[in-house]
Structures are given as structure tokens and as C-alpha cells.
Design a protein around this nucleic acid. Structure first.
Lengths: 219, 219
DNA sequence: TTATCGGTTATTGGATACAATATGCAAGAG
DNA sequence: CTCTTGCATATTGTATCCAATAACCGATAA
């Protein structure tokens, strides 16, 4: 007998489910910097014991999203202006390289997907959507680089600062400027000009950095 | 009353102790690629239950040092030639930037410490010592950059590939060539030539990459 | 022979119970 | 009143036990 094989999604463990939910809440800013994460409380939310909760918190700590102190618990890890500045520099360095490697391999499908995110971004109406489409626009342009390690680092870095990225986009001129810069980056990709796409990406990120530092310094 | 305060080292949890021990064993190559890590076997080694072992394995998985399958356990994560090539490219990119930022801030103490590692490296007699002194030579030159995020990523990346770095150094001309290149890098740092130190570091890493790929392809 | 089925064992995932530590408060000494 | 001290409580860290799943192996039928 021959039947269609269905990809059994390898049902995730409770620890992973909790991890993903907490990560999403932190990334989207629903959990504020410094907010304590009580094992017992989270366990009750998910109808589990504290064991998988602890595993989830361990994962989040490894990613720098929470900070833990022995016998005192975990809190959502914030970020200082200095760290923010450094991380945006890091992004400019790595994402510039990644897009440069991606452009020569970029497919029409990828370009179309990126344009869809670009348009969705410019039509979006709230910070969560801005953040999502902005991020997906960029990572879509990166994926054809096929640089798995680089892409993993980029994703982890974006997870770490996603909250601040959203806040920066929400500034007065944030979305409009990002939109114009996205258009330019996409045009360079469509033209197959890797060096230009890289340079525009670096400028885009460093411009956002300046915007963000202004925001952070004003409180 | 006034007494000397002693820094109580915040005794580490069992999970962290196990994590560090396993990490060291993997990094130094005592645990081979693909070797399974049984929870209760490790628990017996450390006279603990499996709970802290699982936390340690979770941490190692987040760092990419082990790969886990649900209900099947964890194995030491190996690396493919493609991944190796990509990671060495990443190192060249990031470490080049880091040393460039470090040179203008580099203190005489740092330079002296780096020279000590350089000499210890050239006098070392076995792969473990080569690896340690090689790594410390480079990270010493990076530290004055004060780029905490970059340095964290560099350390994690080195952890991921330390085994292969050691193997590459052990090739016929590995140590001699590395030694000569280290001298040149250190000279550029002492001369305050940041751009040259960065370029030499990139070349050093990319040269090692070619060496390693040769090793991996030959088996 | 070879493929499939059933059960046995080994191993991991998770729940409950207990131990270790920190925090807050109230009582008492100065 | 202020500071210390000791206890009560809250929270985390770990051990033990049970549940879920995978791997192995022998028996059986085509």
C-alpha cells in the first residue's frame, strides 16, 4: 500500500513551546526590561511543572534575552545605549557582507517576496507590523546568500534588539525614511549591484543607529 | 568593625559546572563528533540527578556544540567542510574589524601579554597548548576594543570550531606559519597600524581556512 | 528468505517532592 | 528611634519517580 506521507511536525516539547512563547513576548515588548519571570507563575500559565520552564529560561539566557541570578530568578535583559550602539555597528558589518554575497545568487522569487514585504511595511499601521515586515524584508534579501552561520547570528542579533528596532521605527520620521531606504536597497538588488546594496544596507543600519541613540538618550 | 571582604565566588550551580566540563571536553576534542551524551551516564559522573545535566545539554545545544533529537538524545555536533569555510570567512570579517578597533586603544600591558602568548605558542609542544596559546594570543589583542558584543560572538565562534583549529595547527607547516604571521600581526599592533593589523589578521584567518579545507577534504 | 508484528528494554520528557537560599518583617537591644 | 537578629515566607535548585517514545529482537506468515 502507498499513502501520502505527511510531515509529522515532530511535536515540540513543552520546553520549546514555552521558550518560543516567552521569546515572542520579549521580542515584541510585551514583557518589559527588568520584568521578573517567575518559574512557578509561568508553569501555571502553561499547565506544566517548572522543569520545562527552567529549560526555556536557560535557552533565553543563552541568547541574552534574560539575565538570571542564582536563587533570585530571571528578568528580561535590557540593553544600554553603549551596547545598542555596538550591536548596530555589528549589524552593519555582518548584514552588509551577507547581502553582498546574496545579490549574485538572488532569484526573482526572492526579489518578489522582498517587494511584498516592502509594500506591506509601508501600508502597516502599528509598531508590531512595522517591525515584522521590516525584519522580513531584510532577512528575505539575505537568505539567498546561503550563509547558514551568518544568517543564524543575524537572526539571534535581531532577536536581541527587536524591541529597540520597533521603538526606533515608531519615531516621527522612522517609517518614511526606512521605506525610502528600502526602495533603494531593493533597486540595487534588482540591478544586481552587490556592492551598492551592501553599502546602502550599511548606511541604512547606521542611520537607524543614530536615530535609536537619540531616542535612548532622551529616555 | 572592618574586615577584609572576600569575594565569595557565587558558587556555581551543578548545571553550570557540568556545562563547563562538557564544553571543555568538546572543545579540546576529548569527545568526538557524533559521540552520544547519555544523561544518566553524565549524571553518575558528577553525582547528580539528570536535571542539571539536561540544563547543561540545553546550554550546549544553544551554542551549537551538541545536537539534540527529541527522545533520542544529544550528540556532539560536528561541522561540514562548507560550514567550516563559512565560519572562517565570518571570523575574518569580525575579527578583522575587532582588532582594527582595538589597536588605537591597545595598552603596553596588552601588547606584553600578547607577546607572552606568542612565545608560549612557539615553545609549545602539543596540540592542546598550541590551541590555547594561539587563541589567547588573538583574544588578548582583541580585548582592548571593549566591544563586548563582538567579543562574545568571537568567543562563541571560537568555541564552535576550536577542535578544527587545533587540528589545522597540527598540520605539517601549521605552527611555523602561524608563528610568523603572529609576529607580523603583533608588529603592526605595536606600530599602531590598525589597518595593517586588520588586514594581516584577515589573511591569517583565510590562510588557515585554506589549510583546514585541505585537511577536511583529505578526510 | 524476508518483511511485518508484538513485546521487551533503554532512554528521554515531565511531574512531584524536598533542599537550599534569599527576602521581608517583627521583636528586641542599644 | 535605629540597628540588629531571628523567624516566616517565597523562590529557586535538585532528587526521585512516572510517562512517553524509540530501538532492539525474536516469532511468525507470505
Amino acid at each position: 500500500m502507498q499513502i501520502d506521507s505527511v510531515n509529522i511536525g515532530q511535536t515540540a516539547s513543552a520546553a520549546v513551546i514555552i521558550y518560543e512563547a516567552l521569546k515572542k513576548a520579549i521580542i515584541e515588548g510585551q514583557l518589559k526590561d527588568g520584568e521578573p519571570l517567575r518559574q512557578d507563575e509561568i508553569a501555571r500559565m502553561f499547565n506544566t511543572s517548572r522543569i520545562p520552564v527552567r529549560e526555556a529560561l536557560t535557552m533565553l539566557e543563552q541568547q541574552g534575552l534574560v539575565a538570571t541570578q542564582r536563587y533570585k530568578g530571571a528578568v528580561v535583559a535590557g540593553i544600554s545605549p553603549d551596547e545598542a550602539a555596538e550591536i548596530w555597528d555589528f549589524r552593519a558589518l555582518v548584514e552588509g557582507r551577507v547581502i553582498e554575497m546574496a545579490v549574485p545568487r538572488m532569484t526573482p522569487e526572492t526579489l518578489a517576496a522582498a517587494r511584498a514585504h516592502l509594500e506591506a511595511f509601508s501600508n502597516a499601521a502599528n509598531p508590531v507590523e512595522w517591525g515584522d515586515h521590516n525584519r522580513h524584508f531584510h532577512t528575505t534579501l539575505y537568505r539567498d546568500s546561503a550563509l547558514a552561520y551568518h544568517l543564524g547570528i543575524v537572526e539571534k542579533t535581531l532577536d536581541r534588539v527587536d524591541r529597540y528596532l520597533r521603538a526606533q521605527l515608531s519615531l516621527s520620521n522612522g517609517v518614511a525614511r526606512a521605506n525610502a531606504e528600502h526602495e533603494a536597497i531593493l533597486a540595487a538588488c534588482e540591478a544586481g549591484d552587490a556592492a551598492r546594496a551592501a553599502e546602502l544596507t550599511r548606511r541604512h543600519i547606521l542611520g537607524a543607529k543614530a536615530n535609536l541613540l537619540d531616542l535612548l538618550s532622551r529616555g
